[in-house]
Design a protein around this nucleic acid. Structure first.
Length: 580
DNA sequence: GCCGTTTTCGGCCCGACTGTTTTCAGTCG
């Protein structure tokens, strides 16, 4: 049983306990354990096998460790099975309805015998909910609207879609009179791969104009709430956004609060309390009621004796302890970028000739670009047949002459890891290329052991330099291959092959938690855009954010290395002509 | 259920907004 499954079990326990009416601290403990498990870079099952004590993990004590053990060993959990006999499991679906929480779910269950969404909708339509204590006509209408919205919603929005949408709203908000600043917050600012609601924050003395503008923004289907400091809306596409407005002199605490994560903020407030301060979105408050206002986030962190923590790290994964010890990772940044190592041209499915990609790379200040067109077997695109590689080489040589010392152009390949586990090109051909990326695109649904073995084969091929977008996932439509990631990481550490964090917002693969594990194991990483057109080179920032979320530092990333160092590394990999 | 340079028992973050209420509970982030 993997960590995700374990986390699902503990989340289910928390939901059921909440409906049952258990004390909140117990449910909170189960939720925290679920979060921790989901964000661990190593499998709990593996740790158990190695004889590690799970109670060493923060948030996991004796009781939960025993439950993990039972789940890993038997695939079942007696405690959960007993719990489900008390509280019908289908009730947790009701918690998904906006404005329905555990108390109201328990109420409709106990008073009306409702156990699922269909029964809830029917009861609301029949006007039965309004008769319950504490509920009225409006609550009933809210339930119906909530169910409708639930049916319309597609779940979390990919970061690549949410960010441009939010940026447009923010630009419009900045243009309003009296608006001093407008920034993204929440998971958007932390650059999670998917975003639930859009969280937006505005600095302004008077919120009235801003709020009135926001709730009437084009595309707003309904207003979920509107107040002087906070409003939230739902768009016709099902996306939700909420906006906070705070005075500029309180913007720091407000931004810190709105950025989250919730768990990070809880830790921050605990530290504040230990220093005799109370931290809220409005201010830090001393015990005598005196307020300390923070116009920027640096002041908030400084007041707690901490350096500023980059938003991508704020997931309560040890960043606060690291900050206290002054051991936060060195910040990875675009201005450190030297090379782009995964691009396509019209030699396969790219949109432009090599020269246009080269020029675009030069414009961005890069000093190395690798053209890595697809090998020929990938059916959906026109790959390069092996006998065309010499002609491509001639073109690259000609361009290298033309652009001379401005940029080094590498002839690479994105070679397909075929369904049978072999690579699409024989070793003799791979050996002639400057750089080899091996990637999965097909037969991703093979059983774990089989698909993992394919990647392991590629890792052990001495000509392969990089494993491209390891799982092959596409957000949100395609789940990645069910890889045994620890086995892959161990093999990469052993052979020295680099793993890619593919920067395309539909991929962001290797994902953050495994990037973090990779650097622990000393595996070189590379962050590339997989650009099929010049402007896609700018997607690199998504990859950088994902790497930051994985605590990756500049020296871990091939793309920040000086060209000489990179070419030397490629040469040592044994297949490269690059240095010549 | 977890946790401990004040604690192995008694704590466990803070506030906005809504609806159903006559002062607050529930939900959300």
């Amino acid at each position: 049983m993997d960590n995700r499954k374990l986390a699902e079990n503990f989340t289910l326990i928390a939901d059921l306990l909440e409906i049952k009416g258990e004390v909140v601290f117990k449910t909170r403990a189960y939720r925290r354990a679920a979060e921790t498990l989901a964000s661990m870079s190593q499998q709990a099952a593996n740790l158990l096998q190695q004889g590690e004590n799970l109670t060493a993990i923060p948030g996991i004590g004796k009781a939960i460790a025993e439950k993990i053990e039972e789940l890993v060993e038997s695939g079942r959990l007696q405690y959960l099975e007993r719990l489900q006999q008390e509280v019908p499991r289908s009730l947790v679906d009701l918690l998904q309805v906006p404005d329905l929480g555990p108390k109201k779910v328990a109420l409709v269950w106990k008073e009306l015998g409702i156990t699922n969404l269909e029964e809830l909708e029917a009861a609301a339509q029949q006007g039965k909910l309004r008769q319950l204590p504490g509920m009225g006509e409006k609550s009933e209408a809210k339930v119906l609207a909530g169910i409708a919205s639930l049916k319309r919603r597609t779940g979390r929005t990919p970061l690549g879609d949410a960010l441009p949408f939010a940026d447009q709203i923010l630009a419009d908000l900045r243009a309003l009179p009296g608006v001093v600043a407008a920034e993204p917050a929440g998971s958007l600012r932390r650059r999670k791969i998917t975003v639930g609601d859009l969280d937006l924050l505005v600095a302004a003395e008077d919120s009235t104009t801003v709020m009135n503008y926001f709730v009437k923004y084009p595309g707003v289907e309904r207003i979920l709430g509107q107040g002087p400091t906070k409003s939230s809306v739902e768009f016709s596409n099902g996306m939700r956004a909420q906006l906070w407005v705070h005075p500029p002199q309180r913007f720091g605490t407000a931004l810190q609060y709105a950025t989250g994560s919730k768990e990070h903020n809880v830790r921050m407030r605990e530290i504040a309390l230990s220093k005799g301060l109370s931290l809220s979105e409005h201010a830090l408050t001393r015990e005598n009621g005196e307020e300390i206002l923070c116009a920027n986030e640096e002041q908030v962190y400084a007041a707690l004796g901490l350096p500023w923590i980059p938003p991508e790290l704020r997931e309560d994964r040890g960043e606060i302890q690291a900050a206290q010890l002054n051991k936060l990772p060195l910040r990875l940044d675009l201005d450190q970028w030297v090379s782009e190592l995964h691009t396509h041209s019209t030699w396969s499915d790219g949109k432009v000739p090599i020269e246009d990609m080269v020029k675009a790379a030069i414009e961005r200040g890069y000093r190395v670009i690798a053209l890595t067109d697809h090998s020929h077997s990938l059916g959906i695109v026109q790959g390069i047949p092996p006998d065309a590689l010499p002609r491509q080489k001639e073109e690259i040589d000609r361009l290298q002459q033309k652009y001379g010392s401005q940029i080094k152009i590498l002839q690479g390949i994105e070679v397909e890891i075929k369904a049978d586990g072999s690579l699409d090109y024989p070793d003799e051909i791979l050996a002639t290329l400057d750089l080899v990326i091996a990637s999965l695109h097909i037969s991703l649904r093979q059983p774990r052991q089989q698909v993992t073995q394919r990647v392991l084969n590629a890792i052990h091929n001495p000509h392969v330099d990089i494993i491209g977008h390891p799982t092959g996932r596409l957000i949100p439509e395609r789940e990645g291959a069910d890889l045994d990631m620890e086995a892959i990481l161990q093999a990469a550490a052993q052979t020295g092959v680099a793993l890619e964090i593919n920067a395309h917002p539909k991929r962001l693969d290797l994902e953050d938690i495994y990037a973090r594990r990779a650097i622990e194991l000393g595996i070189p990483l590379t962050i590339n855009t997989d650009a099929h057109a010049p402007d896609q080179l700018d997607l690199i920032t998504f990859g950088i954010s994902t790497a930051r979320r994985g605590w990756v530092e500049p020296q871990h990333v091939l793309n920040t290395w000086e060209p000489d160092l990179l070419l030397e590394w490629l040469d040592k990999r044994g297949n490269s002509n690059a240095a010549r």
